[in-house]
Design a protein around this nucleic acid. Structure first.
Lengths: 343, 343
DNA sequence: TTGAAAGCGTTACCAG
DNA sequence: CTGGTAACGCTTTCAA
């Protein structure tokens, strides 16, 4: 592994010129630049990471804390980890992964040792312990998700309230008077930050639109199709003509199966809209209208804020809500004629 | 952030003594040690990561390349990432995550810049491009999985051949004359390294035991329950009385559903054994005998080998196969009386 | 446009 | 058992 001295010698310049030629922080004549680039290529030079961290102001590393708990929905979490890694790399940053209980001790450690420039927090719980930690350490920290107490923190997330309200509005606009929310698994309402936000927004907006709303969760374990079917069944039995789905892809499929088994059609008999899904609802057996949770959107913004926080000016604390977008797939229509139902 | 100078001053010793007191690489008198530890605590000192990397021989970071492709089974991959992170931390190492196309460019980069001490490779494809790369770079690289050409590489994996053979043996020992393998999704046989190993081992051992074998894969997309049921159905229709399952948890559930729907019981009518599962087969609707793939086993060994490779002696290249273990859950029994079947 | 040199904060060697 | 000091390889200020 060649170092900057060898490059300088080979190019016949000083090491500072090599450094500037590579960083572009100072103009370098085209001729010398070429000689340096040649030397770099020939020697296969790459600046030493440790030296750079020490001399420079940046480590070019972000920590990503993601507990990766067993009971979480792996595909979604994987999508966020991936989106974060991609966003980071686009800005010349690498991701150091902090999982498990190590999430907390790890945050302390990387902050204290100056290993990372900033910390990104995934899988945020309502009462997340990492919140208090973030306030203690000097390393800028960005939350992807909103804890109960977000005071002074930098947070990024989809505007789940707006998304849920939008879903209810579409159904209400189409004439539905009774909507049902097929929600997450039960535990998610305490371990995760956004399910409660969706649920209360559905009820709030339903009240504002003067229509009735009900909620049923999708069981206690992941990939429990039966529970999802049961949830849909109870809501339909309760008279709901419009369903808002905030659940896993499996649960989506189960709900559609339940609807089909009842001999009902989407959207003629039942209208369905998905909220906060990060998979493709157009690929389901019945394509569904969707107000998706786009990992890249949240993660791109989070990385942007982390970078901003490194600037002398810093980033203003506060919650950044991402405006939801509605994707129409034809799964919402007016409810069936009440007279027919009255049979 | 205090540095070593401040600690030395506060403790009234030289910085070298502080360094040695912390690393333990040189004896330090109990008295000075205490004074230093106090100073460290008071100043909340933590050695600077960059300086350490530069001066020391180690960065205390492993790179983990895991493409995190969309078509992979997220839960399994997450389990391996987690297991690797835990094993690394147990040895004072952090994990730098390399995903995506970045896997290759990233390996080059972290190796060239000396950012990491070793590289761990997950989700190994039969013709993995990272193999050639590993041979080019100086950074020790450990593969968790076995590529087609493993020459000169350090590889770790469950002995899938032995596991598959063991499954066939158990069925044959119980008296089964016809076994069926419910395999992975179709694409896995080209994108992943172990599914073909399981399949050929099943057929090989069946031949050795002079019994018949058949294979059916579980469709083209993940979480396609129908395909898994169809696979089980075709094997049962083909006369298989023993099933070897090498597939996702969803597919396991689907197979059991198919068996139940046919009015068959496990193990009285059909014997079933799971191979290479990294989830709990005892938690299925019918607990299944299992020869599991244990992420921690592979990842612990991989980390161990990575550490060994850093020693002057290095680690000997070669494939380390982990001996499979059999977990009995009562899902294997002798096949039903042939005379009854002949009705 | 370029060079010299002072750090950056450790580790580890050489003395004592 | 302890201290002084030379690296480690880069960035950046100060001079020219």
């Amino acid at each position: 592994m060649a170092n900057i001295n060898e490059v300088a010698e080979a190019a016949g310049v000083s090491i500072s010129t090599v450094s500037y030629a590579l960083s572009g922080k100072r103009p370098v004549s085209p001729a010398t630049r070429r000689r340096i680039e040649d030397a770099v290529r020939v020697l296969d030079y790459s600046p030493n990471a440790g030296a750079r961290m020490l001399a420079g102001r940046r480590t070019q590393i972000f920590a990503l804390t993601e507990p990766l708990r067993k009971d979480t929905h792996a595909p979604t979490h994987m999508a966020f980890v991936l989106a974060t890694a991609i966003a980071a790399r686009r800005n010349e940053y690498d991701i150091l992964l902090l999982t498990d209980e190590e999430a907390q001790a790890g945050m302390r450690r990387v902050a204290a040792s100056g290993l990372v420039d900033a910390i990104l927090v995934l899988d945020v719980a309502p009462d997340d312990a990492r919140v208090a930690l973030a306030r203690q350490i000097a390393t800028p920290t960005v939350f992807i998700g909103i804890p109960d107490d977000s005071d002074g923190l930098i947070c990024v997330d989809l505007d789940f309230e707006a998304a849920a309200a939008m879903a209810v509005d579409r159904l209400a606009d189409a004439g539905h008077r009774s909507v049902g929310l097929v929600g997450q698994i039960e535990t998610a309402y305490t371990t995760s930050n956004f399910p409660p936000r969706v649920r209360s927004a559905v009820f709030d907006r339903a009240r504002e639109r003067a229509i009735s709303a009900a909620h049923a969760n999708t069981g206690v374990t992941q990939s429990d199709r039966t529970a999802a079917r049961r949830a849909a069944a109870s809501l339909l039995d309760g008279g709901a003509t419009g369903l808002v789905l905030h659940c896993t892809d499996d649960a989506h499929a189960a709900v559609l199966a339940e609807i089909a088994d009842r001999g009902l059609r989407v959207p003629e008999d039942v209208s369905v809209v998905s909220v906060g899904a990060s998979f493709d609802t157009a690929a389901l057996s019945t394509p569904l209208d969707s107000i998706p949770l786009v990992p890249a959107a949240s993660c791109d913004l989070a990385v942007e804020l982390a970078l901003e926080a490194l600037e002398p000016a810093g980033a203003t604390p506060g919650v950044r809500l991402i405006t939801p977008t509605y994707h129409r797939r034809g799964s919402i229509a007016p409810p069936p004629d009440p007279r027919v139902e009255a049979d």
